[in-house]
Amino acid sequence: MDDSSQILIPDAFAALYRSPRTGRLTLPRDELAARHEFCEDLAQAMVEPARAMLFRHGIAEDEVLRRCHLGLIGEGSGVRADEAFWVACRLAELLEWSQPETPAVG
């Protein structure tokens, strides 16, 4: 059995790659799994820097998440805009903080 078939991809992440018209995935499953793994690793790696930002700068949790999201949507981050928001949401979940507000579209 292929190892990638063992990876559980959250519905919220898979939804980023579903066609609104057909509901089918727009990426092969192995590519979807790779994108999810990259984004999950990114969120995990951001936990300690986010905590440090909270205490070092004395800012609110939502501001930390906003700044992290801004960094993720910047050029060269390696993630798409919708993945960036997913990473920010996953980061909030890992930190047990409130979920960030949905970013403005456009």
Rank of each mutant, 00 (worst) to 15 (best):
R35N: 11
D11W: 00
P49H: 10
D30I: 08
R80Q: 10
E63Q: 10
P20C: 02
E61I: 00
D3T: 09
G106D: 13
D2Q: 10
A15I: 01
F55H: 09
M1S: 13
P100S: 01
L65T: 10
T22V: 03
E96Q: 11
A34G: 06
R90H: 14
T22W: 06
P103N: 08
E48M: 12
R67T: 01
A52G: 06
V64Q: 03
G58H: 04
L32V: 08
R21G: 04
P20I: 04
E31N: 07
A84M: 03
D30A: 13
V105S: 07
Q44Y: 08
R29A: 14
A60Q: 10
Y17V: 01
A12K: 04
R29N: 11
W86N: 01
E101N: 09
A84Q: 06
E61V: 03
A92K: 07
A34F: 05
S19T: 02
F38D: 04
D2E: 14
Q6D: 13
A84F: 12
T26F: 00
H57A: 09
C89T: 12
E93W: 09
E37N: 13
E40A: 14
I9A: 08
A60N: 02
R56H: 02
D3C: 01
I9P: 00
P20V: 03
A43K: 10
P100H: 05
M1I: 03
A50N: 11
R24S: 06
A12Y: 00
A34Y: 11
R51W: 13
R21F: 11
